[in-house]
Design a protein around this nucleic acid. Structure first.
Lengths: 201, 201
DNA sequence: GTCTATACAACGATAGAC
DNA sequence: GTCTATCGTTGTATAGAC
């Protein structure tokens, strides 16, 4: 992450920093809901929240980060996650992705993933914004390893990860629902690794 | 319901054939909702519908078939599907599963899968019944090939299949959403095949 | 007559009481 | 272990629609 709350009192605009963050999240939900991800602008969200547009980057790292936490309620910050995933050898990429996915969502609690699925399944709006967000994010993740067919590989990885979340957190099939993380990494990482760098046709 | 049947139970054809089917579906939704899949009995459902238990087999092939059409609204009959999947060499099992999954759901239309996901994500009840149904069904599918760790393999297969459906029908990530079936079979079948018969630890 | 939706009986499996 | 009750399922005779 960037800084903690070192700039909170600098010009005394708002005494409590958390209020800015909360206001941004509420404004973001409204604006993203009205305009979609592409249609919503950081400036419009910040204006509605009554704060400066720079606060978006300060609190959420990016427009995507704000979207992730406000609308999708993802339990992580995309930029930070990107750095975590890309740090390591390419042939352990699948392993890192699966382990990180499970660790983060386990930490957040199954109901968070469940809520995400419900909103995506229920509202075409949410599906659309998630789609552009996920594709943009995962393309960055995959882009660095120089494989071809980036879009298809992205879809394939998404299918295995999303399915893993569905089985573990939503449908709660045993033994996957109660399993430790590492056995699942062992079983599933080769799939993701193949989707990333292997032969897919 | 098909009427309170004030007439004494007579053998033979009752006027209004479709009414029995409809009555069974309505009764099944009620009983499955109250008791879950295992707790609900065919006889209880038939009694509530005011017809004989044998009508379940006549109209839906099995208890699972009734559940599939009444609660999950699946576009296929489990027994028929089981026969289709198990007919062929074991080393093409993954291929058949992926192709059949996509063919059936494509035929039904994406909104049907979407509705299934929504009901499973929304109601713990539906998740529970789907869980026992799916495990029972897939255990039969996998049971014939004699692999170990049947439950884990079932979960893994389910994760890839459900994820594929989520990406193609719900989130609609390109290119997976618009792809022809066969390229997806080529890309994903090896994953399912490995989950079924390969090394997973 | 044929066709089929229906009811009833019975089978094998399974779970629990004793 | 034995007995019993109940489960899902199957076979079959029958009644009504055609």
């Amino acid at each position: 992450m960037a800084g903690e709350d070192t700039t909170a009192r600098r010009r005394g605009r708002r005494p409590g920093g958390q209020d800015t963050r909360t206001a941004l999240i509420e404004a973001a939900r409204a604006v993203f809901g009205e305009s979609g991800f592409d249609g919503a602008t950081v400036r419009a969200i910040a204006t509605r929240a009554g704060v400066d547009a720079a606060m978006v980057n300060h609190w959420f790292g990016s427009k995507e980060g704000l979207f992730a936490q406000a609308v999708l309620k993802l339990p992580f910050e995309p930029h930070e996650l990107l750095a975590e995933l890309t740090d390591g050898p390419d042939d352990e990429f699948g392993e890192r992705i699966v382990r990180t996915f499970l660790t983060r969502w386990d930490g957040a609690g199954g109901h968070v993933f469940q809520a995400l699925v419900r909103s995506v399944a229920g509202h075409e709006q949410a599906a659309q914004v998630l789609r552009s967000f996920f594709q943009s994010f995962f393309t960055k993740v995959i882009g660095g390893i120089g494989s071809d067919r980036v879009e298809l590989r992205t879809s394939l990885c998404a299918s295995q990860l999303v399915g893993m979340g569905m089985v573990r957190y939503v449908a709660q099939f045993e033994p996957m629902a109660s399993s430790e993380i590492e056995p699942l990494v062992t079983a599933i990482a080769p799939t993701v690794q193949r989707y990333l760098t292997g032969d897919i046709d």
